[in-house]
Design a protein around this nucleic acid. Structure first.
Ligand SMILES: [Zn+2]
Ligand SMILES: [Zn+2]
Ligand SMILES: [Zn+2]
Ligand SMILES: [Zn+2]
Lengths: 143, 143
DNA sequence: TTATAAATGAAAATATTTTTCATTTAATAT
DNA sequence: ATATTAAATGAAAAATATTTTCATTTATAA
């Protein structure tokens, strides 16, 4: 289940952050975009609107939203782009044709984590799992 | 099994690339470094040596080595750093304390891939799996 | 050797991200 | 409503990172 704009804003407030028009606009853009967006893409879309918005504010807002786990970055494929987070821990399936990001969950990596801890002595804290492929549309369209 | 400098150079030649002193030096640096290295770190280490080396050449060489699957990039943790590739497909275990990268393999993601394909219609081509934690040394030293 | 296509690197161009700081403003308390 | 204040904004500059251009050098093969 993807987070709604309302929910994201509520969590922001909960943590003591102010709800500025700029932040609303950024959240709206990230939530409404189907695929992932870069800071620059958000800027292109939003600046010169009402309210006007600076690139710095976008960087700062994305940083906060990421830290709170409300959005997350997509790594595979090179770019540093953002996608909206599902509420819980999840992973990404990314279309190399059109950039669509599908979240998936339910993959339990605990067993693998245990094996790795045992074999290497690492104390594992986090992980990153992404799949890259072609979505149905891009397969059909021969992208 | 990590690739040797010799093996990497052989593959380069095999694909028609020339073996320049600069490329030898870059390969040597990446192979000998225990943890991952950034282009800038390689540059700091190598320029002003014999032969002198430019940052551009480092970018270009890393790009080729990555394309040939001889080294790979580490994503988790933010940076764009490189580590030497094991010969086959593998994944990364990264120490957040000291940057050590341990390769691991033997994790079969085929079952998960099938499930995802079935559920989403994606044709999956690749994936990225990284774990982040603390290595034994960093746990002991309380980093 | 010599020929030649490939590779290099200095410099410039472009792109990305962070810092600084004067100004504005959202939220809270009156 | 109004005043207060700490938080947020954005322009500008600085700092970083990456790519392009092109004249020069060089690894390879004939
Ligand atoms: Zn995950
Ligand atoms: Zn697609
Ligand atoms: Zn992998
Ligand atoms: Zn460590």
């Amino acid at each position: 289940m993807r987070l709604s704009q309302k929910k994201i804003m509520a969590v922001l407030r909960q943590y003591g952050y102010r709800l500025t028009p700029q932040r609303r606009a950024i959240i709206k853009t990230v939530v409404l975009s189907q695929d992932h967006v870069t800071p620059a893409a958000i800027y292109d879309k939003l600046h010169q609107g009402q309210p006007n918005i600076g690139l710095v504010t976008i960087y700062r807002t994305l940083e906060i939203l990421t830290r709170l786990g409300l959005i997350c970055q997509v790594h595979a494929g090179g770019g540093h782009s953002y996608t909206i987070s599902a509420s819980g821990h999840h992973h990404h399936l990314i279309c190399s044709g059109c950039g669509l990001v599908v979240d998936f969950a339910g993959q339990n990596l605990a067993g693998l984590e245990q094996r790795l801890s045992r074999e290497t002595g690492f104390k594992i804290e986090d992980h990153l799992l992404e799949f890259v492929g072609l979505c149905q549309d891009c397969q059909r369209d021969g992208v």
